[in-house]
Design a protein around this nucleic acid. Structure first.
Length: 109
DNA sequence: GTTCTCACA
DNA sequence: TGTGAGAA
């Protein structure tokens, strides 16, 4: 009877994204970017990794994966790491606002 | 399974 | 800029 509304749908996707944290291997496989390159960008400061507990294995959250995917596309378009990083950061600003908005709704009973 | 450094093109 | 290999 209760049909999923667009609002409920977006919340379901958001819940999935904020829980989607995988290692560099998964990101490299899904993003198609060699693990070497992913770490390379992270070293440049284009993207950041989240450390899990004490392990040294860096995990990448949806936002980081999005950056890798975005930077890869930008680089393929003829952009350089510096140019791609700038565009990605601007895009992250928008995504961050959406995340904060969804986070508030998800945390609001 | 991941991470680090060194070196090269 | 991106990758190779070895080592821990």
């Amino acid at each position: 009877m209760s049909e999923p509304t667009s609002a409920d749908n977006v919340l379901m996707d958001f819940d999935l994204l904020r829980k989607l944290i995988v290692g560099i291997g998964e990101v490299a496989d899904i993003s198609g970017v060699p693990q070497r390159q992913i770490r390379y960008w992270e070293d440049k400061g284009i993207i950041q990794s989240v450390k899990e507990g004490e392990g040294t294995t860096r995990k990448y959250d949806y936002l980081n994966i999005k950056k890798v995917l975005l930077v890869k596309d930008l680089l393929d378009d003829g952009y350089t790491l510096d140019a791609a990083a700038r565009k990605v950061e601007e895009r992250m600003k928008t995504i961050n606002e959406v995340f904060a908005r969804l986070s508030a709704q998800n945390s609001t009973p």
